[in-house]
């Protein structure tokens, strides 16, 4: 270990703080996002499982349940895929929470918190890199969907809008998960806690079957569930329509309703998560 440092550094290099805090925070966010993307590359198992489970869902529902779920007006498989898109990206948000919890647990968060960097950047970087995972997942699922009979009927531009609104909603959910990830002690707890919430949230909806047949209380919840509206918005943009839409404002105006929820969730959970980040201690 030869000493190659300049003897005694009087002025620390880091003392030159950039003048514009926004630019500097964005820069920090990019560094953190890059780090998370490297992790996707290094732990391909993670991506493989993230991708395999939606493929599995599409195949299981399409061929196992699909054979027993006849619906009028549209091929069930075409109906199904939009729902699975929504469900999968919402599940994908748990990666945000689990990743943050892991960073806290391993002390990496302490390192970040002791650096002269933007505090919000760790969270913005993390949620941004998880959008990348969701994009990859959607591409794979779309290809699987096309193989089993899903179709884009309204043109590519509208289809992209459909993907965009699904991604946007998932982005909001990943801030909920970020908050949970910073609140609980370990990645395992994040997974368990969020499954308790995500399973009902994505099943009590129009994701897998139309809501008409639900008992009335459940139908009410399902029709006003934003997971239903984001699914409905996606189906409309993809042109997977043909079923009567329940006469509920949320589903008659699925894009507006989804955007309202997205904004509300972000308004609540971004500040909550940033505050929790300051508190989160690894021990």
């Amino acid at each position: 270990m030869t000493a190659t440092l300049q003897p005694s550094a009087p002025a620390p290099v880091a003392a030159q703080r950039p003048s514009n805090p926004v630019v500097s925070a964005l820069g920090d966010g990019v560094v953190i996002a890059k780090r998370n993307v490297i992790k996707i590359k290094r732990v391909p198992e993670l991506l493989v499982f993230t991708l395999l489970s939606p493929i599995m869902f599409i195949l299981l529902f399409a061929y196992v349940f699909g054979s027993a779920i006849p619906i009028e007006g549209i091929n069930y498989r075409e109906f199904l895929v939009g729902g699975i898109f929504a469900q999968t990206v919402i599940f994908g948000a748990t990666i945000t929470g689990a990743g943050l919890a892991e960073d806290v647990q391993k002390g990496i968060m302490d390192r970040f918190r002791s650096l002269p960097m933007s505090r919000a950047a760790v969270l913005f970087g993390r949620t941004a890199s998880d959008v990348i995972i969701n994009v990859i997942t959607l591409v794979i699922m779309a290809l699987t969907g096309l193989a089993v009979g899903w179709r884009i009927r309204e043109g590519l531009l509208k289809a992209l809008l459909g993907f965009a609104i699904i991604l946007l909603f998932a982005y909001a959910i990943s801030w909920v998960m970020a908050w949970i990830g910073l609140l609980v002690p370990s990645p395992e707890v994040v997974n368990n806690a969020s499954f308790m919430f995500i399973f009902p949230a994505t099943f009590i909806a129009n994701t897998f079957v139309p809501t008409d047949g639900f008992p009335s209380a459940l139908r009410f919840v399902a029709n006003w569930n934003p997971v239903s509206s984001v699914t409905q918005a996606g189906r409309e943009y993809f042109g997977n329509t043909g079923l009567p839409v329940p006469d509920v404002w949320a589903l008659q105006h699925p894009v507006a309703y989804t955007l309202i929820w997205t904004v509300l969730i972000l308004l609540v959970f971004v500040p909550l998560s940033v505050r929790q980040f300051k508190v989160a201690a690894s021990r």
Binding site: A14, Q16, R17, P18, D28, V31, K34, R111, L115, P116
Partner: peptide, 9 residues
């Protein structure tokens, strides 16, 4: 390198 970038090196 990541830490250096976060220090704005």
């Amino acid at each position: 390198d990541m830490i250096g970038r976060l220090y704005k090196l």
